Computed example of a mutant assay.
Amino acid sequence: MSKIRITKQFSFEAGHALHGYDGKCRNLHGHSYYLYVTVIGSPIQDDKNVKHGMVIDFGDLKKIVKDEIVDVFDHSMIFNKNTPHLELATDLKNRGHNVILVDYQPTTEMMIIDFAKKIKKRLPNNIELHSLKLQETATSFAEWYASENE
Results as ranks from 00 to 15, higher is better:
His97Asn: 02
Val65Pro: 08
Asn149Ala: 14
Ile40Glu: 15
Leu101Phe: 05
Lys63Ser: 04
Pro124Trp: 03
Phe12Glu: 08
Glu150Ile: 14
Arg26Asp: 13
Arg95Leu: 06
Val39Ile: 12
Asp91Val: 12
Ser76Trp: 05
Ser42Gly: 05
Pro84Gln: 06
Leu132Ser: 02
Tyr145Gln: 09
Ser42Gln: 08
Phe73Asn: 07
Leu35Lys: 14
His130Leu: 05
Glu109Ile: 11
Arg26Ala: 15
Leu129Trp: 01
Asp114Leu: 00
His52Gln: 04
Ala146Lys: 10
Trp144Pro: 00
Ala17Gly: 10
Met54Ala: 02
Ser140Arg: 05
Gly96Met: 01
Ile6Phe: 13
Ala116Glu: 08
Met77Arg: 05
Asn94Tyr: 09
Gly23Cys: 12
Gly20Cys: 11
Thr83Phe: 10
Val55Phe: 07
Ala17Gln: 10
Glu13Cys: 05
Asn98His: 12
His75Ala: 08
Leu35Asn: 13
Arg122Pro: 02
Ile40Pro: 01
Met54Thr: 01
Ile44Leu: 07
Val39Asp: 00
Lys48Leu: 04
Ile100Met: 03
Ser2Met: 10
Gln45Ile: 14
Tyr34Pro: 00
Ile112Arg: 05
Glu13Ile: 02
Leu92Asp: 04
Leu123Tyr: 09
Leu35Ala: 12
Ala17Ile: 05
Ile64Thr: 09
Leu134His: 08
Lys133Asp: 00
Met1His: 01
Ile4Thr: 12
His75Trp: 02
Lys48Val: 03
Asp114Asn: 14
Cys25Asp: 02
Lys62Pro: 01
Met54Ile: 03
Ile69Pro: 09
Asp47Glu: 07
Thr90Arg: 04
Phe10Val: 15
Arg26Phe: 14
Met110Leu: 14
Ser11Pro: 13
Thr7Val: 14
Val50Ala: 06
Val55Asn: 07
Val50Asn: 02
Thr108Asn: 02
His29Pro: 04
Phe141Ser: 06
Ile119Phe: 11
Asn49Trp: 09
Leu92Gly: 08
Ile69Met: 06
Leu132Tyr: 10
Ser147His: 12
Leu129Cys: 01
Leu129Thr: 11
Asp114Cys: 12
Glu13Leu: 04
Thr139Gln: 08
Val50Gln: 05
Phe58Met: 09
Pro43Arg: 13
Val39Gly: 06
Tyr36Asp: 03
Gly96Ile: 04
His85Ile: 02
Glu150Lys: 13
Gln45Gly: 10
Asp22Phe: 04
Asp60Gly: 09
Lys121Thr: 11
Ser32Leu: 06
Leu134Cys: 04
Gly30Trp: 00
Asn149Arg: 15
Val37Pro: 06
Arg5Val: 11
Asn49Val: 09
Met111Leu: 15
Asp74Met: 04
Met111Gly: 03
Phe73Thr: 05
Ile40Gly: 10
Met110Phe: 10
Gly53Asp: 07
His85Glu: 06
His29Asn: 15
Asn94Met: 05
Arg5Trp: 00
Asp57Ser: 13
Asn80Ile: 09
Asp71Ala: 08
Arg5Thr: 13
Leu28Trp: 12
Gly23Thr: 15
Pro84Asn: 13
Ile100Cys: 04
Arg95Gln: 12
Ala17Ser: 15
Glu136Phe: 10
Pro106Tyr: 04
Ala138Pro: 12
Ala146Ile: 00
Met54Arg: 00
Gly41His: 11
Lys81Val: 14
Leu132Asn: 07
Glu109Thr: 08
Tyr145Asn: 06
Met111Arg: 02
Gln135Val: 13
Ser76Gly: 02
Glu143Asp: 01
Thr108Ser: 11
Ile78Gln: 01
Lys51Tyr: 12
Ile69Ser: 10
Tyr104Ala: 03
Asn126Ile: 00
Ser42Glu: 15
Ile112Trp: 03
